[in-house]
Amino acid sequence: MWDWTAFLHYLHSTYLMTGALMSLGLSVGAMLIGLVFGVVAAMMRMSDRWWLRLPASGYVWLFRGTPVLVQLIIIYTGLPQLGIQLGVVASALIGLGVNEGAYLAEIIRSGISAVPKGQFEAARAIGMTWPKTMRVIVMPQAMRIIIPPLGNAFNGLMKTSSLASVISLEELLRRTELLVQVQFKVLEIFIVAALYYLVLTTLWGFIQQWLEAYASRSIAGEDSMRRTRLPPAVEAESVVLPS
């Protein structure tokens, strides 16, 4: 029996909403940690020094090769045995973040590899140092390629964050389960939780679309954002696309 009254009641339950916000915060935090690890690992993997490449490859291999759930449990439940005691939030952030970093490293690396070599050379030829070349010339162009898979990774992360419920972090799924245990409206409450996740990923979808358009604004084409930046006369003239 489906209980509409209960469903509508839980739909605006502050208890669940706070849980959803926790899920969102956890995802954002883990993504930021992942980006730091990912950028560093990507740079290291592209180095011509083996002692930089090797640890980065090992990191990617290890974290992509084992389930994130196992990693979370090891960090929260296993590490105290070695005297490393992390709180539940810290464990979840580190576990999800470091794991995500291994995936992001591959995304970032492929984005940087896709920037033509001539862009590096032109930057070097006008006297840019390597870090400046990366920051001013290469990364902005790599972003165009990186942002779509990066956005998908964040979408995935928002759902994967539910695994933190296993180590008793009170995010959306954990709170849903706790609520179900006392109120017994299993289907209604879980459907509400699913809708919350759906709202989060849908909103992110819109943000991602905007980000993708923003990163591609210098590509000639039907991009609406560019239209507002350039007078029509410029576009009317002969445009030769690079082959």
Partner: peptide, 12 residues
Amino acid sequence: GMVFQQFNLFSH
């Protein structure tokens, strides 16, 4: 200063 065969203008 250097000018390349493929121009290599910063595309962004």
